[in-house]
């Protein structure tokens, strides 16, 4: 009943309250998020959990698992377990950076395309053109144009992901604009940025989040593909794709070297995809109770 309740609360506070309510109602989503948090923690705490992943020991090449090297060593005598743990960092940071960047840029462009009549049409044609190029191919081309490094990889993967997000956001905006609550808001004098922030964005959030998880999953795979092909990241940086590329030569004698990074990659992508799936179910107004996200 205080004045605080009446003042337009910042979007963030609102979203946090909403997210909490949502998590309580959807257990599977919470479990998937917890698993992702766990993997992120592994990545962050990598130096505490594993030895140096770059330490080369030619005398100790291709050793089976032992007390010292839990998952054995690779063709340069590096600890496989350490590389796996440190590889989590690469995959997750690429995945989440791409998801965040795609969402941010995609929402801005999508909002523009949804509101501007002529400009929107132009944006969508460019969008269509970009979507006609296979995403991985475009990423490879972009990555090979840029200098090596994680940022370059993230940029190279983000650009082909954006058109998909733009398309989703634009369709949502066009739908939301037809809703009576938008007409109602305009009638009571809401316009410009407050109209978008209060009424449009919160009501497009659900499907955008779902699309973001798909972007995340495909970015994780794309980063592995780039590393596997040796584009973008330097071979010194431990990554699951790089590990798989290295393991290729020893595949006949030591298939386990391929197995570990492969399993880790599949697990992470699976978790992110399940999260996206459950999110889209949970946010489907026909399946979920009306009004919650």
């Amino acid at each position: 009943m205080s004045e605080i309740a009446v003042a337009p609360r910042p979007l963030l506070v609102d979203l946090l309250a909403l997210a909490l309510r949502f998590l309580r109602a959807h257990r599977e989503v919470s479990v998937m998020l917890a698993l992702i948090a766990l993997m992120a923690l592994v990545g962050i705490l990598a130096p505490l959990l594993a030895p140096d992943p770059a330490a080369i020991n030619p005398a100790n090449r291709l050793k089976p698992p032992s007390a010292e090297h839990w998952l054995g060593t690779d063709h340069l005598g590096r600890d496989v377990y350490a590389r796996l743990v440190f590889g989590t960092r690469t995959s997750m940071s690429v995945g989440f950076s791409v998801a965040a960047a795609t969402t941010l840029i995609g929402v801005v462009i999508g909002l523009y395309a949804g509101f501007a009549r002529r400009g929107g049409a132009i944006v969508m044609r460019i969008n269509d053109a970009m979507m006609s190029i296979p995403a991985v191919l475009l990423a490879i081309a972009l990555a090979s144009l840029m200098s090596q490094g994680l940022t370059a990889v993230i940029v190279a993967i983000t650009i082909p992901e954006i058109p998909r997000m733009v398309r989703v956001v634009r369709a949502l905006v066009l739908g939301v604009r037809q809703q009576p609550y938008i007409a109602a808001a305009v009638s009571i004098g809401t316009r410009g940025v407050p109209l978008v922030m209060r009424h449009v964005i919160p009501n497009t959030l659900g499907p955008v989040l779902v699309q973001a998880t798909y972007a995340c999953a495909s970015a994780i795979i794309a980063s592995a593909v780039l590393a596997f092909l040796g584009v973008g990241t330097s071979p010194d940086v431990p990554s699951w794709g790089g590990m798989m590329a290295d393991a290729r030569r020893q595949f006949r004698l030591h298939p386990d070297l391929m197995l570990y990074p492969g399993l880790a990659l599949s697990a992470l992508v699976l978790i992110v995809n399940i999260l996206g799936d459950r999110l889209s179910d949970a946010m489907d107004p026909r399946k979920a109770r009306r009004g919650i996200l």
Binding site: P8, Y181, A183, A184, P202
Partner: peptide
């Protein structure tokens, strides 16, 4: 549909 489902009645009226 004429009320924004993400806002409480109080905020809708205050807007």
């Amino acid at each position: 549909a004429s009320l924004n489902a993400r806002m409480t009645a109080r905020r809708i009226l205050a807007e």
